[in-house]
Design a protein around this nucleic acid. Structure first.
Lengths: 168, 168
DNA sequence: CCAAACTAGATGCATTTGCATCTATCGCCC
DNA sequence: GGGCGATAGATGCAAATGCATCTAGTTTGG
C-alpha cells in the first residue's frame, strides 16, 4: 500500500465504548482506501505518461480544467487549492508559470481586496480544449476495457458519496 | 477536475467503426475517473495533514508499508516503483533518505547483480507499525461516516477490478 | 473608530522531484 | 565466448514543492 496501512490489531474480545468502530470495521475501511488509492496511482501513472501531457504538466492542466468547468469562468485561488493536492505556495507559483505562458490572468477579487480571481485567457481555453480532448480519449481507453458502464456509474456514485461525506 | 477532463464533443450522428466507443461511453468514463481522482485527493489531503505524518512524509511511509506487507520482507526497487507515483530517480533518492535514517537496508539481489533488494530494519518495522496504527485510525474516521460497510466493499471491488483491468 | 486577530496570497530558502545521462550487469545471438 | 542492445539503479542539474514568514486587506471587539 501507499498511503493506507493496517498495522496493529485489537485484542480479541475487547469491549468498546458504544459508537466506536470494531477492529473489523477499521480494517475494512483501511483496505477500501488502499484499493482506491492504488487504483488511482495506477491510472494516473498511465495517463500522465501519455503524449497529452508533454505540452503541459498534469497539475497545471488540472488548474486550466478546473477553470474551464466553472460557470463564471473565474475562481479564487483558495477555491482552486481545495481541489488540488498542492500547498498554497506551490499553487501560487504554479499560477505564476501559467500566467507567464499567457494561459491565465490574475485579477483582484471585487468583493475582497485580498483575494485573487483567476481566469483563462483565449490561449488557455484553447490549450485546455486541445489537451482535454486527448486526455478524455486516454481515460476512456483505460476505463472502458476494465469496467462496464454500470460499474463506472457505481464507482462514480460511491466516490462522490465518499467525498461529500468527508468532514468540513 | 484535476486530471480528467472532458473537452470536445463528437458530431452528433457520426457513424463509428465497430468496437469504437460512443461519445456517451467516453464521457461516462471521464466523469468516473474525475470522481475517483477528486475523492482520492480529498481523502489524501486530510490524511497527510494529520499528526501521523509529522514523523515521516507520506511517500516515505508508503515504502515502509509496502515492504511490511511483502511476505519475504524484501522487494526490488523497480517493484516498489510500480506501486508509487514517483519517478525512478526520486524513488532512488527517497530510499537514500530512508537508509540514512536507518529504516531500510539495501542489499544486492542474489539472482540479478543489477537489482537492489530493499528490506526494513528493526527500526523501520517499529516506525511503520507506529505510524500505521495512527494512520489506520485516521482512515477509519474518514471512511466510516461516509460509506457503509457494503459500500466500502463495493468500492474496493470496483477499484480492484479497475486496477487489474489496466493494460500491462 | 481604532487596535488586535484573522485571512488571502506572495516570497525566501532548503528539500524534493524529474529528466537526461551514466555505470554496471544481464541476455541474446552470432 | 565476445560483442550489442536492453534493463536496474545512481547521479548531475534544473525545476517544482513545502514550510515559515511576510505583506496587505478584512473582520471583530471595545
Amino acid at each position: 500500500m501507499s498511503s493506507p496501512a493496517p498495522a496493529g490489531k485489537a485484542p480479541a474480545g475487547a469491549a468498546r465504548p458504544a459508537g466506536a468502530a470494531s477492529g473489523k470495521d477499521v480494517r475494512l475501511a483501511a483496505e477500501a482506501w488502499e484499493s482506491l488509492f492504488r487504483s488511482q496511482v495506477a491510472v494516473m501513472r498511465r495517463l500522465q505518461s501519455g503524449p497529452a501531457f508533454k505540452k503541459l504538466p498534469v497539475k497545471e492542466y488540472d488548474v486550466l480544467f478546473t477553470l474551464s468547468r466553472c460557470p463564471t469562468g473565474k475562481l479564487r485561488l483558495n477555491e482552486i487549492n481545495d481541489h488540488v493536492l498542492l500547498s498554497q505556495s506551490s499553487l501560487s507559483r504554479l499560477v505564476d508559470r501559467l500566467e507567464k505562458r499567457g494561459l491565465v490572468e490574475r485579477s483582484i477579487a471585487p468583493e475582497d481586496g485580498r483575494g485573487i480571481l483567476l481566469g483563462l485567457t483565449e490561449a488557455g481555453v484553447a490549450l485546455q480544449k486541445e489537451i482535454g480532448r486527448e486526455h478524455v480519449r486516454d481515460i476512456a481507453e483505460l476505463l472502458l476495457p476494465a469496467l462496464s458502464a454500470t460499474e463506472q456509474q457505481e464507482l462514480m456514485r460511491l466516490t462522490e458519496k465518499l467525498r461529500s461525506g468527508l468532514p468540513d
